[in-house]
């Protein structure tokens, strides 16, 4: 794990330069003839949304790994993933809302994508709260891992049931607009660059958080060792 932390310094610089390049592209790209300036919101919104989901997948994998192999590394990585994923989900929701106001004329619509993202954010907060709420770190780690796996099973069901519910009630008028699948041609490169930069950003942040959490655990062990000898 220490080697990973040493590597992360380089990853940080790489992320920073990728982000700078992507942002330069974002603000020099030609404007969409329909959406104008507002398409730039999507360059932040879409990669954040992808990362919010991607980090959850990683969290599920770490959780399963922790349950299966009782690996502390996996537990630390799982603990580190939750706040990072929550940050991505939060930016996704707020940027989507800010984009929705000029485009749809409303801040919020209960479509499948927004609803699942909201549930994802609540789930991240629940995972963080559960771990903070349990004093025994071993029990807390295990409970959190099981919760994360159940959340992973539940999220597709939620997405499916909400989209089904909405399509039965009203035509999915917004459906595709928020995915970025309408972004084509000259608008595509900034999106691709931002997405790649965000994959690095997510990895960097998770490893950074992992370093913090590992340090905190080592420190706690040292301090209890000291008080038990006193």
């Amino acid at each position: 794990m220490k080697r990973l932390f040493a590597l992360n310094r380089w990853l940080g610089w790489l992320t920073l330069s990728l982000l700078a390049a992507a942002l330069w592209l974002v603000f020099t790209a030609p404007l969409d003839y329909q959406q104008g300036n507002s398409v730039r919101i999507l360059y932040m919104h879409v990669p954040s949304a992808k990362m919010a989901l991607f980090v959850y997948i990683a969290l599920t994998v770490f959780s399963a790994w922790h349950l299966w192999k009782k690996s502390e590394t996996a537990d630390i990585l799982a603990e580190a993933s939750a706040p990072v994923g929550a940050a991505f989900a939060l930016v996704t929701l707020v940027s989507g809302s800010i984009w929705g106001k000029p485009m749809w004329g409303t801040w919020w619509a209960w479509d499948a994508r927004l609803t699942s993202m909201l549930v994802l954010l609540i789930l991240y907060m629940g995972i963080i709260a559960l771990r903070n709420g349990i004093d025994d770190p071993i029990k807390g780690g295990r409970a959190t891992a099981i919760l994360a796996i159940f959340g992973a099973i539940d999220l597709p069901i939620i997405h499916f049931s909400v989209s089904w519910w909405r399509t039965l009630h009203q035509p999915p008028s917004f459906g595709q607009a928020s995915t970025g699948s309408t972004i084509t041609g000259p608008l595509l490169p900034p999106l691709v660059w931002m997405s790649v930069a965000f994959i690095f950003l997510g990895t960097y942040l998770v490893i950074l958080k992992a370093r913090e959490i590992r340090g905190r655990r080592i420190l706690e062990n040292l301090e209890t060792e000291r008080t038990s000898h006193a």
Binding site: R40, H45, S95, I98
Partner: peptide, 16 residues
């Protein structure tokens, strides 16, 4: 839409 764009990028900078 500049105001909206600036708001989004400011928020993202703040969070990340």
């Amino acid at each position: 839409y500049s105001v909206y764009v600036i708001a989004v990028y400011a928020l993202a900078t703040l969070v990340y």
